[in-house]
Design a protein around this nucleic acid. Structure first.
Length: 402
RNA sequence: GCCUGUUUAGCUCAGUCGGUAGAGCAAGCGGCUGUUAACCGCUAGGCCGUAGGUUCAAGUCCUACAACAGGCGCCA
C-alpha cells in the first residue's frame, strides 16, 4: 500500500522519532521514517475531517467514537465511573450488585419493561381470562429493574453503608434530552443517618467527581470548553471550591412566588417544581447547585420519612444549572406504623410490601439514600446537551440500534 | 403523550413574489507545503422525506403520513 491509501478513517502504523514541535497547538510531533496502512477506508467512509451533527453521528454510533468529541466523552465517562467506586470504597461502603430482573414492582418509580418467556400471541390464561403468570419463567410477572433502592435498603440495614451502580430501565415514553430507557444509576444508602447526612454525602460525592475530572481529564475538559460548552471550565473550577446552597421547598416556593409572572406554570405550595422553576433556582437565584428539601408528602414516594409538621417529607433533590435535577433522595420512613399508613394512604397493595416492612419490624434504623443519574452527571461535567451522546449506545423510545 | 420546528448533493446548509436547483466541506484529478475541524485550480455528484391536492407551472402553497430535532410532562 502507498500513502494514497492514508485517507480519513484508515488505520496504520507509523515508525519515527518523537520530537518537540515548533507548532503552537501541540507539544510533540512524530517525524515518520516508515508508514504502513493496515486498513484503508475508501471514499465511502462516512466521517470527514469536519464538524458533523450529533444526530448524524448517532446513526453511526459504531464509528462516532473515532471522533474527538466522543473520544473525550467516553474518557470522561470512564474516569467518572472509576471515581464513583473510589469515592465509596474509600469510605467503606459495600458495593451491592442489585438484581437486573425484578419481580417486585413495589417501586413505582416508572413503567417496567416486562421480562417473559410466554408466547406473546397466545399466552396461557386463567379462568378469568387474565394472563397466567404462574406459567411464566419466574412463576410471576417480572420486569427489568427501575431502581436498586429497596435492595440497597436491605443491605444498609444489615451490612451498613451500601451503594449500587448499575443499569436501570424505564419504559416511559420520554422524549427529552435528559431521559433514556436504559441508563446507569448510582444509589448509595446510608445507615444510621438522616436527611442532612444524606445531603452532606451527596455534596462531597459531586465535589469529588468534579475535582477528579478536573485533575484527570484536563485535556478533554479544555476541548469541551472550547468546542462544546464555552465557560464550562470556569463553571467547574468555581464549583470545585464551593459549598452547595440548601433551602426547604417552602423557602424555594417563596422565592418562586416573588417572580411568578415570568413562569408559564404558576408556582403554588403543594405543586411539584417544574423544569422552569428548577432552572430559575439553580441558574439565576443561586447560580450553582442547590438542595431543595422537605417537599409536600403528596407529591413524593411512599417510603419517604414524614416530618413532624405532618405535611412534608424528608426528601431532597439536588438541582444543577442546565441539567436540572441530578440527584433525588430522601430519608426513609423507618417507623413501622407510619410506613404502613402511607402504603394504605397511597392506595398501594400492602401484601407486596411485607418484606420491606420486615426491615422496620425487626431492628429498624434511621437510614437514607439518593439516586444519581450517571449520564446526567456526564452531561453536567462535559456540557454535552443531549443525554444520547454521553452513553455508548442509547436506548430511547423507538430506538435500540447496535 | 402534548406543543413547536426541520426534512434540498456523502455531510452542513442557502434557495427571494410559485417559473424544473446553489455554496462550503467531503470525494476524484492536479498543485502547494510547518500543517493542526489548512490552502489553490479543475471534475463529478440531486425522485428536493413519502403519498395526495391546488396551479399553465410546485423545492416553494395546501392536506395526510413518516423520520428527526427542540421544548413540556414523567423522572435520574
Amino acid at each position: 500500500m502507498c500513502s494514497s491509501d492514508l485517507t480519513t478513517g484508515a488505520s496504520g502504523r507509523v515508525t519515527g522519532t518523537l520530537a518537540a514541535s515548533p507548532a503552537g497547538q501541540q507539544a510533540v510531533e512524530l517525524t515518520a521514517t516508515e508508514l504502513t496502512v493496515l486498513g484503508d477506508a475508501g471514499p465511502d467512509f462516512p466521517m470527514q475531517k469536519k464538524r458533523h451533527s450529533f444526530e448524524f453521528l448517532r446513526d453511526i454510533a459504531h464509528l462516532r467514537t473515532r471522533s474527538n468529541t466522543f473520544g473525550a466523552v467516553f474518557r470522561v465517562r470512564n474516569v467518572l465511573a472509576r471515581e464513583i467506586h473510589a469515592f465509596f470504597q474509600e469510605r467503606g461502603f459495600i458495593y451491592l450488585h442489585s438484581p437486573i430482573v425484578s419481580t417486585s414492582d413495589c417501586e413505582g418509580a416508572g413503567e417496567m419493561f416486562q421480562v417473559t418467556t410466554l408466547p406473546i400471541e397466545a399466552p396461557p390464561r386463567d379462568d378469568a381470562g387474565a394472563v397466567d403468570y404462574s406459567k411464566d419463567f419466574f412463576g410471576k410477572k417480572a420486569g427489568l429493574t427501575v431502581s436498586g433502592q429497596l435492595e440497597a435498603e436491605i443491605f444498609a440495614c444489615s451490612l451498613g453503608d451500601t451503594y449500587t451502580f448499575g443499569p436501570t430501565f424505564r419504559a416511559e415514553n420520554s422524549n427529552t434530552s435528559r431521559h433514556l430507557a436504559e441508563f446507569w444509576m448510582v444509589e448509595p444508602e446510608l445507615a444510621f443517618a438522616d436527611i442532612h447526612d444524606d445531603m452532606d454525602l451527596a455534596e462531597a460525592f459531586i465535589l469529588h467527581l468534579v475535582r477528579s475530572v478536573l485533575e484527570h481529564c484536563a485535556e478533554d475538559l479544555a476541548f469541551f470548553d472550547k468546542m462544546i460548552a464555552p465557560g464550562q471550565l470556569e463553571m467547574l473550577n468555581k464549583l470545585a471550591g464551593a459549598s452547595f446552597a440548601r433551602m426547604t421547598y417552602t423557602e424555594a416556593m417563596d422565592h418562586l412566588l416573588k417572580v411568578a409572572d415570568r413562569f408559564e406554570f404558576k408556582p403554588y405550595w403543594g405543586a411539584d417544581l417544574q423544569s422552569e422553576h428548577e432552572r430559575y433556582l439553580a441558574e439565576e437565584l443561586v447560580g450553582g447547585p442547590v438542595f431543595v428539601i422537605d417537599y409536600p408528602k403528596e407529591i413524593k414516594a411512599f417510603y419517604m420519612r414524614c416530618n413532624d409538621d405532618g405535611k412534608t417529607v424528608a426528601a431532597m433533590d439536588l438541582l444543577v444549572p442546565r441539567v436540572g435535577e441530578i440527584i433525588g433522595g430522601s430519608q426513609r420512613e423507618e417507623r413501622l406504623e407510619h410506613l404502613s399508613r402511607r402504603i394504605v394512604e397511597m392506595g398501594l397493595p400492602p401484601e407486596n410490601y411485607e418484606w420491606y416492612l420486615d426491615l422496620r419490624r425487626f431492628g429498624t434504623i434511621p437510614h437514607c439514600g439518593f439516586g444519581l443519574g450517571f449520564e446526567r452527571m456526564v452531561q453536567f461535567v462535559t456540557g454535552m446537551g443531549n443525554i444520547r451522546d454521553v452513553i455508548p449506545f442509547p436506548r430511547t423510545p423507538g430506538n435500540a440500534s447496535f
